[in-house]
């Protein structure tokens, strides 16, 4: 068990839990963040910038602080 923000580029995991308030939870849901989905970290921007992740055919960028709310099982 780890959180999305701990992944290294190229690593992936399956989403176990999303800890977010209602509005953020719904937005994440709509973008494909759902329990059981496979998610990969593609790259990180320099200076602790946003993370570039991929779920299915959707590429998303999000900040570290949001990525910490997403719990994963490493695959």
């Amino acid at each position: 068990m780890t959180v999305l923000s701990n992944l290294m580029p190229g690593q992936y995991g399956t989403i176990q839990a999303i800890h977010a308030e209602q509005a953020l939870y719904q937005r994440l849901n709509a973008l494909g963040f759902r329990i059981g989905k496979k998610i990969a970290l593609i790259r990180r921007a320099s200076f602790n910038g946003p993370l570039h992740v991929r779920i299915g055919a959707t590429d998303i960028i999000l900040r570290e602080i949001e990525a910490q709310r997403i719990q994963l099982n490493l695959v």
């Binding site: 953020l24 973008l31 570039h52 959707t58 602080i65």
Partner: peptide, 9 residues
Amino acid sequence: EPFILELPP
């Protein structure tokens, strides 16, 4: 405000 954005092809 959270920053979450799609990256289209």
